[in-house]
Amino acid sequence: MTNSIEYIFKKFPDEIKRALFSVPDYVKSSIEEIRIKVNGSMVIYASEKEYFLSRDNKFTTDRKNSRLITNKELQNIFNSVLNYSVYAHEEELSNGYVTIQGGHRVGVCGKVVMDEEKVKTIKDISSLNIRRSREIIGISEKIIQYIFRDSKSIYNTLIVSPPKCGKTTLLRDIVRNLSDRGFKIGVVDERSEIAGMFGGFPQNNLGLRTDVLDGCPKEKGIIMMIRSMSPDIIATDEIGKEADVYAVESALTAGINLITTIHGYTFNDLENSNIKKLVKERVFDRILFMSNIPSVGHIKSIVNSKNEIIIKQE
C-alpha cells in the first residue's frame, strides 16, 4: 500500500528509522501523528497514548527517559521527508504544510519569511508534525443508506466533529463508495488531505468516477468544478469561511449535491458558525455528528436539516 506508515519511517535517519520499525505492530497500526521538535522530543501519538524517543533510541511511554532532538537531526528529517527537494515544495510550504507520498501531511513551524503581505516560505524549521493519512475502506458502508435520497441522488451532507475524530477519513470513504456506485464526483481538495495527491496521482482510493482539483481554494474550486467537470456531487473538506457559502450556493443552484465537513460539536455550533446561513436555509439534509469516544470515527448521531434525529448511538 502506497500510504503505508512505513513510507514515512523510511524517510528518517538510520537510528530513528530502526526505532520506528521496532515499534510494536499494534502501535504502528494506530499511529495518528509523529511530532518532532528541535531541542525537544520526538513523540508518536497513537490510540490516545504518547511514545517518546528514548536515549537508547527506542520508543517508550516513559517521558523522563526521552532524548532531545538536535537541530541537525530535525533539519535532516525535514529535508529527507521532502525528498531532499525543498525547492519543489516552496508553494506548499508557504501554507505551512506539505503533502508527501502516501498522502500524509507534514506540518512545519519555523521562521516565516514574508513577501509583502504573502507568506513566502518557512525557514529555520523548529518543529514538524507528520500527520498520517488514513484510508479505511468500507467505513462509510454503515451510514451510506442515510445519505441516499433515492437511488439516483443523495442528500446534501455535512460531517461535523472536533479535530482528530475521523471526518476526512469518513468523507474519503463516502466519496469512494458513491463514486463506485455510479456518481460522478468532483473533489475540491484544498489541503490535499482527501485524495492526498502526490506527483499528480491520488494516493487514496476515491473511486472510479472521481475527479480531483488539488490545492485549490474551495470557493474557487467549487465554481471551477461545476464549470469544467459537470459532477453529480461535489465533495470538499472543512468549510467554514464566509466565501465558502457563496460557492456552496452556486453548486446548489447548478443542481449539484454537496458533501462536506466542518469543525464543531453540536447543531448549535453550526447555527453560530460562518455557514449559519446555509444551516438556517436548511441546505444540509443530513448532518453527521462524530466523536472519538469510544474510538476515532464514532458516529454519535445523524440528524436532518431541522435537527431531528434520524439515528443516535452513544
Binding site: 523510511k10 524517510k11 535517519p13 538510520d14 528509522k17 541537525k72 535532516n76 529535508n79 529527507s80 531532499y84
Partner: peptide
C-alpha cells in the same frame, strides 16, 4: 547511496 541510506544527511 541514496537508495541504501535514504533518510541520512544528503
Amino acid at each position: 547511496l541514496l537508495r541504501q541510506s535514504y533518510g541520512n544527511d544528503f
